[in-house]
Design a protein around this nucleic acid. Structure first.
Length: 616
RNA sequence: GCGCCUGUAGCUCAGCUGGAUAGAGCAGCGGCCUUCGAAGCCGCGGGUCGGGGGUUCGAAUCCCUCCGGGCGCGCCA
């Protein structure tokens, strides 16, 4: 059981006991029966104890008691608890707790016994969630901004699953309409040796695509634009074998550790007649109106609020006067399809520049009979790309954007490890809340990659692993039943408390759809361990070689304490690895120094040697 | 003009479902490697939480207002 919950339950039963004795006044029963409005948390300041509660402050009004008087009553009952060592009354009525080591020891055992599943809610205990993310137009390689969408969506999916939800990840492919037609036109123009039209796509990859098609499927140029577009989009998603510039969106996403369960093509909605059907349904329910030869969607709300200027959304065209459908028509059909699939909740990850789209979709969903309360748009602020401090205008049409794989590859090379780029980008993007705008300097991201905090957290994991490996090497093992009484050091207990906060961290991150809470947790945990580890070198977990070389060292060495600490290390490693997994960042067992970088230790040694030479 | 996001240390950002003396990383300064990994650790300096009002035992957090930044408001995609 989680430590804070242990204390909360102890408080709850203390309250009940006091109520039994009539010490809390008349209406105490009803007050305590209501929803809990108080909490047990880690205090900001360590000298306030392991945990604190605002229970007396929160209940004082309802119980018509002075906060400190109530706190005093509670304290008297609570000090009798087996888990609580001492209670202090502080400030306006806070209760500060010091807990007995056994509470922390039990928490560590809980982690070790549960393993990687620690912190996860029972699977399928939550909602059935449809998560749409990326959905970038497949008319170019993925840029850094779409990368944010991919990484954010993916990690939200991971966190939601850890919190017990069932998640379907989906990519909506815009493979229909004007943009696609323009893409085909651009390919045709380049194939014919001409110029790309003004509104066309100018990137180098378009030329490569044209060359590839001419070489491998020349007949496609005779089959009409739609057929050509279809093939081109397919190639953009699947990639061209052996090509460096066109590895395919699917591959790019996979390299980022991002996967989708469903790739949903817009074109299929038109081909199957779903668009017409969805519009017919809206027409029956009175949501459509013909005006000036075009068909408009009229949200009920807007209609009822008459000429109110603050209406949610204006009327939207679904079918233009020339008979063709707008993208909004596809969107309606797409969401009708989602609704029909029976999800509890629909979540879409969108760039903040698309937020105008949200009200539209909400209105459409209401019109389709799906409550907009069960629809969520996660809006993330834009990514601005800089190169050496200068803003890079990023546009697919102009073909001057920075692709996500360019950046990843550059970091990989710098670090001498495939995957280092993905780790760095994911960690960097996820360490800011979606509401925070991201300035991404490609030069800085690669040049100063050593400063990236991801390596700090990974290093912590590598060190933890290293301790366990060393223990195995010298033949010291600890099974999950070994005594944990050797865990007594305040830092060890503090970290145990941190571990037991992991489940609620996952819950909070999932509820808020905010993976950055996991990032901060991982950093916090890594920091606490690294600090402990470096500071307690004089009191190592394992007997050093110099100790073990002495005859009969086992007699003077406290092996039980070592075993307890090994289990504790295992617990930390388990949680840290799981936190990184939720972020989609690898948890390496060892960190190799990047090429060309010398270990700081050698650096210092060299400097010392030079200094000596200088003085000699 | 209307709507959404945002303003917290020199820089980048947490904290925003109200809690005690507002935090982290980076940058700066000063220390720490014979022993489990120094990509590490310890310490120091650094703040009108954009301004002003209000709500209450208590406000960075909630409400109002003003100022600054980003984005959006097409028979575009």
């Amino acid at each position: 059981m989680v430590i804070a919950d242990v204390v909360a339950e102890t408080i709850a039963s203390a309250l009940n006991a006091l109520a039994e004795q009539g010490k809390l006044g008349e209406g105490a029963r009803a007050v305590l029966g209501g929803t809990r409005n108080w909490s047990v948390e880690r205090p900001k300041r360590a000298e306030h104890g392991h945990l604190m509660s605002n229970v007396a402050l929160a209940l004082s009004k309802a119980l018509k008691m002075q906060p400190r008087a109530l706190a005093e009553l509670l304290k008297e009952v609570l000090v009798q608890s087996k888990t609580i060592e001492s209670v202090e009354l502080a400030g306006p009525g806070f209760l500060n707790f010091k807990l007995r080591p056994v509470v922390f020891q039990d928490a560590v055992r809980d982690v070790v016994r549960t393993g990687p599943g620690f912190g996860r809610a029972l699977s399928a205990s939550g909602e059935r969630i449809h998560l749409e993310f990326v959905s970038a137009n497949p008319v170019g390689p993925m840029n850094v901004a779409s990368g944010r969408n991919a990484i954010l969506g993916d990690s939200i999916g991971r966190v939601l699953e850890a919190a017990g939800h069932r998640v379907t990840r989906e990519y909506y492919v815009n493979d229909f309409g004007n943009q696609i037609r323009m893409f085909a036109e651009s390919i045709v123009a380049l194939d014919a040796g001409g110029e790309v039209p003004a509104e066309g796509y100018k990137g180098e990859y378009v030329r490569e695509l044209a060359t590839y098609l001419r070489k491998n499927d020349p007949a496609i140029f005779e089959k009409g634009r739609d057929e050509l577009a279809r093939i081109a989009i397919t190639l953009m998603i699947r990639g061209i074998q052996g090509s460096k510039g066109l590895i395919g969106i699917r591959e790019t996403l996979a390299d980022l550790g991002v996967f989708h369960d469903v790739w949903f093509g817009e074109e299929t909605l038109h081909r199957s007649g779903a668009v017409g059907l969805a519009l017919a349904q809206l027409e029956r329910n009175g949501y459509l109106q013909r005006k000036d030869g075009a068909l408009f969607f009229v949200a009920k709300q807007a209609k009822e609020e008459k000429e109110d200027e603050k209406q949610q959304d204006k009327d939207r065209v679904v079918q233009k006067s020339d008979g063709s459908y707008t993208y909004f028509a596809s969107d309606i059909a797409y969401h009708a399809d989602k609704v029909a699939r029976g999800y509890d909740r629909l979540i879409t990850v969108l760039g903040a520049d698309h937020h105008g789209y949200v009200a539209r979709i909400e209105n459409a969903l209401e019109a389709l009979g799906f409550s907009k309360d069960r629809y969520e748009a996660i809006l993330y602020q834009l990514v601005f790309i800089y190169k050496g401090g200068e803003l890079v205008k990023s546009s697919k049409r102009a073909g001057n954007f920075v692709t996500i794989e360019e950046v990843a590859e550059e970091v990989d090379q710098k670090m001498g490890r495939k995957g280092a780029g993905t780790d760095a980008i994911r960690f960097f993007f996820l360490s800011r809340s979606a509401n925070s705008q991201v300035d991404f300097d490609i030069e800085l991201a690669t040049k100063r990659s050593l400063d990236n905090p991801v390596f700090y957290v990974q290093y912590g994991h590598a060190r933890l692993t290293s301790v366990l490996k060393k223990a195995a090497d010298i033949g010291i093992t600890a099974d999950t039943n070994a005594s944990l009484e050797g865990l007594q050091h305040p830092d060890e207990l503090a970290i145990a408390l941190r571990l037991s906060e992991f489940p609620s961290t996952i819950r909070d991150a999932a509820a808020a759809r905010e993976p950055h809470k996991i990032v901060f947790y991982a950093q916090e945990l890594a920091r606490e361990f690294q600090s402990y580890f470096t500071r307690l070198k004089a009191d190592p977990i394992l007997p050093q070689d110099s100790v073990r070389s002495q005859e009969g060292w086992e007699k003077s060495w406290d092996l039980d304490k070592t075993r307890a600490r090994l289990l504790w290390v295992r617990a930390i490693r388990t949680v840290l690895a799981e936190a990184l997994r939720l972020l989609g960042v690898s948890a390496p067992d060892r960190m190799d120094l990047p090429q060309g970088e010398v270990a700081q230790g050698e650096d210092v040694a060299e400097a010392n040697a030079e200094a000596k030479e200088g003085s000699a």
